[in-house]
């Protein structure tokens, strides 16, 4: 029997959060963590979490599993269970709405700050803005982000300053547009990032790289932004 321990908190009835333990029979199968949750929910319908695609595409079921952030739907038990125990908590650092659901407002506010859309003030061509295969290749490793927040909520700098440090997810998207040959707002974008918090609170701890379920590398993108800021300023 697998021991599953789930963080429970319903602000309408509970004074404070508590951990609820379940015994779970995997029947020898290497299930995904989300499968375990779904089966437990069929026994206790009050267990609350977000999920949608159940295949690592939508980014809605980011959880802290045995201390490490990841997507429940693509994390097999074999990759996370230690000593027959599975501890599930909400993503750290964000306010909990209920059980495993966190309020992502601060995370999205930082995403909004980087203006995650193409800006180009030259007249639009008749059909489309072309890009060479080489320039397109620069967006690889950036555009794949699904905004699951696993990275930002594993970053101590984001825990301490979620209102001032953009965080790995937002900065990865920031660089996605800085690196885009079709975007002409590079200077304005960089000017907004020059302060001591937005980018420079990153101390290169690489927790973000360690947890990204899409295998992306926000630290590297942050390094590129820093180099752009440095060459602009010196």
């Amino acid at each position: 029997m697998l021991k599953v321990s789930i963080y429970r908190y319903n602000p309408e009835v509970d004074d404070k959060p508590y951990m609820q333990d379940f015994d779970f029979d995997t029947q020898g199968k290497d299930l995904m963590v989300l499968d375990v949750l779904e089966q437990l929910k069929s026994q206790d319908t009050t267990i609350t979490y977000r999920r949608s695609c159940r295949e690592g595409v939508c980014g809605s079921d980011g959880l802290n599993m045995n201390g490490k952030n990841g997507l429940a739907c693509i994390t097999p038990l074999s990759a996370t269970v230690k000593g027959n125990k599975l501890v599930l908590r909400p993503l750290p650092g964000l306010p909990v709405i209920r059980d495993l659901i966190v309020d992502m407002s601060m995370f999205y506010a930082q995403y909004e700050k980087v203006q995650p859309y193409l800006q180009n003030n030259s007249p639009a061509p008749a059909i489309e803005r072309l890009q060479s295969p080489e320039d397109r290749a620069k967006l690889d490793g950036l555009y794949e982000c699904i905004l699951c927040a696993c990275c930002s909520t594993s970053c101590p700098s984001f825990w301490w300053n979620p209102d001032r440090f953009i965080g790995p997810a937002g900065l990865l998207q920031s660089y996605r547009f800085l690196a885009d040959s079709r975007d002409t707002a590079t200077e304005e974008r960089l000017a907004k990032l020059d302060d001591p918090f937005s980018v420079f609170r990153c101390h290169g701890i690489q927790n973000c790289v360690n947890v990204c379920p899409k295998g992306l590398n926000p630290t590297r993108a942050i390094g590129h932004i820093r180099n752009m800021l440095l060459s602009r300023a010196t």
Partner: peptide
């Protein structure tokens, strides 16, 4: 842009370089 008047150079880039 986040303002911070007590930082050394008032710019993250400058503080980083210093």
């Amino acid at each position: 842009m986040v303002t911070a008047v007590t930082s050394f150079g008032r710019s993250g880039t400058s503080d980083w370089l210093v």
